[in-house]
């Protein structure tokens, strides 16, 4: 398959403009969905943090109660894992449509393309996407920080 900039370069300006408008609409849809998912993640992170904070406190005085809190935390953590995984797919779509809008707009403006162009666009956007996605599944780090924070509060 030919590189994307070559395929786009062969299209008429009218067709390109239609495509850019369509990708722009799609981009907005995915931005909106990503914002909603991020809000949900933040809410669940707060709940999880509160739940773990209570459990750590109870751990010092009442282990069975801490175990009960741990069960609730387990479900919240599973929900967080799912939401963060879903967000990585949403962000992938968001990035895809944003990249297409940029490429089409540049072609319409007569920017000369070379194979490096697409590659240059990707790392910039994806450095954030990849790290966010990994942090979405790396809970050990998140939990260790949380535990340290709570223990500091208790001291």
């Amino acid at each position: 398959m030919k590189p994307i900039y070559e395929r786009l370069g062969k299209m008429s300006n009218k067709k390109l403009q239609q495509m850019a408008d369509e990708h722009q609409k799609n981009l907005l849809r995915f931005i909106e969905m990503r914002n909603g998912t991020t809000r949900l993640i933040e809410q669940n992170q707060k709940k999880y943090k509160a739940c773990m904070k209570d459990a750590v406190k109870e751990l010092k005085t009442n282990v069975p109660k801490a175990l009960g809190g741990g069960m609730r935390a387990r479900l919240l953590k599973a929900d967080l894992n799912v939401s963060m995984s879903a967000r990585s797919v949403i962000r992938m779509n968001e990035f895809y449509h944003r990249m297409m809008v940029i490429l089409i707009e540049d072609i319409l403006l007569g920017v000369n393309y070379n194979p490096e162009r697409v590659n240059n666009l990707i790392p910039q956007e994806f450095s954030d996407l990849i790290s966010s996605s990994i942090s979405g599944t790396n809970f050990s780090e998140f939990l260790n920080k949380l535990k340290d924070e709570i223990e500091e509060e208790l001291q």
């Binding site: 369509e22 995915f30 990585s88 779509n93 895809y96 990707i122």
Partner: peptide, 23 residues
Amino acid sequence: SIEGFEFPSALLDLRKDINFGLF
């Protein structure tokens, strides 16, 4: 179900090291 959804193949053609979490 969102209009404009693309499967990961659209981007994995361009970059291989995307992490999709539990997916």
